[in-house]
C-alpha cells in the first residue's frame, strides 16, 4: 500500500498521483501497476473525423464557380461585362475571406484580418471605378481604415498581448465609441458639408462608461469572483 506524503491518505493501488494534491506516488516496494483493476474505465477521447482544408476549399471553389459562370454567360450576351462584374467581385471577396479564415487564421489572426480588409478594399475600389461615385477616398476608405485599425488593435490585445477578457472588452468598448464618432464625422463631412459631430456622442458616452465599469471589475478580484459565481451557467 502507498500513502500520499502530503495528505497522509492511503492511495488505491492503481493511482499514479494523489487525487487530492497531485503529489506523485513513489513507492519502490510497490511500483505502479496499471493492471491492478482500476475501478473506472479509462477515458478515451472521441476523435472527430475532419474534412481536410484542401477538400473544403475545392468544394467551395466549385460552389462559387457555378453562380460566377451563370452570371458571365448571362451578361456576356451583350458582348461586354456590366452588372455581373459586381456579383463576381463580391463572390470573389467572400471566397477570399473564407480562404483566409481557413488557411491564414491558424498562422496569424492579425494577418488574416489584414488580408480580409485588403480584399474588401479591392472590392470597394472596383465599385468606385465602375460607378465613378467619388466617395472612395473621402468616405469608404477612411471608414474601412478606422474599422480595420480598431479590430486589429482589439485582436492584438487579445491574441498577442493575451490580455484578460474583461480588459479586451473594455478597450473594445472605447474603440467602438471612437468608431461611432468617426462614422458620424465622415457622414456629416461628406454628405452635409459640415465639420461637426452629433448623435455619436451618446454611444461614445455609454460605451466609455461600460468600458470604465469593466476595467473596475477587472481590477477587483473579489468582485470578479463573486460575479463569476453569480453568472455561472
Amino acid at each position: 500500500m502507498s500513502y500520499c506524503v502530503n495528505c497522509g491518505v492511503e492511495l488505491a493501488e492503481y493511482i499514479k498521483k494523489c487525487p487530492l494534491c497531485s503529489t506523485e506516488v513513489i513507492n519502490p516496494n510497490q511500483p505502479y501497476d496499471f493492471a491492478n483493476t482500476p475501478p473506472y474505465p479509462e477515458y478515451e477521447p472521441i476523435t472527430k473525423q475532419r474534412v481536410s482544408i484542401k477538400t473544403m476549399l475545392g468544394i467551395l471553389a466549385v460552389i462559387f464557380a457555378v453562380p460566377i459562370a451563370v452570371c458571365l454567360v448571362a451578361d456576356l450576351s451583350d458582348s461586354m461585362l456590366t452588372w455581373s462584374g459586381y456579383i463576381i467581385s463580391s463572390l470573389f471577396t467572400i471566397y477570399t475571406i473564407i480562404v483566409s479564415a481557413l488557411v491564414i487564421h491558424r498562422r496569424s489572426v492579425l494577418l488574416e484580418q489584414i488580408f480580409d480588409y485588403g480584399a474588401i478594399s479591392l472590392l470597394l475600389i472596383y465599385i468606385e471605378y465602375q460607378s465613378k461615385g467619388g466617395w472612395l477616398l473621402s468616405f469608404a476608405l477612411p471608414l474601412l481604415g478606422g474599422i480595420a485599425l480598431s479590430t486589429l488593435f482589439v485582436t492584438f490585445l487579445a491574441k498577442v498581448l493575451n490580455k484578460r477578457i474583461l480588459t479586451v472588452i473594455s478597450f473594445a468598448s472605447f474603440v467602438l465609441g471612437a468608431l461611432c464618432v468617426l462614422c458620424d464625422f465622415l457622414i456629416k463631412f461628406n454628405f452635409y458639408n459640415s465639420i461637426s459631430i452629433g448623435w455619436s456622442l451618446y454611444p461614445l458616452i455609454s460605451l466609455t462608461a461600460i468600458g470604465t465599469v469593466l476595467i473596475v471589475i477587472d481590477s477587483n478580484s473579489y468582485l470578479k469572483r463573486r460575479l463569476a459565481k453569480k453568472f455561472f451557467i
Partner: peptide, 13 residues
Amino acid sequence: KMGIHVKIESNRR
C-alpha cells in the same frame, strides 16, 4: 489529522 485512516480511490489515475 483526527486519526482516522482514509483510503482514496478515484476515476483518474
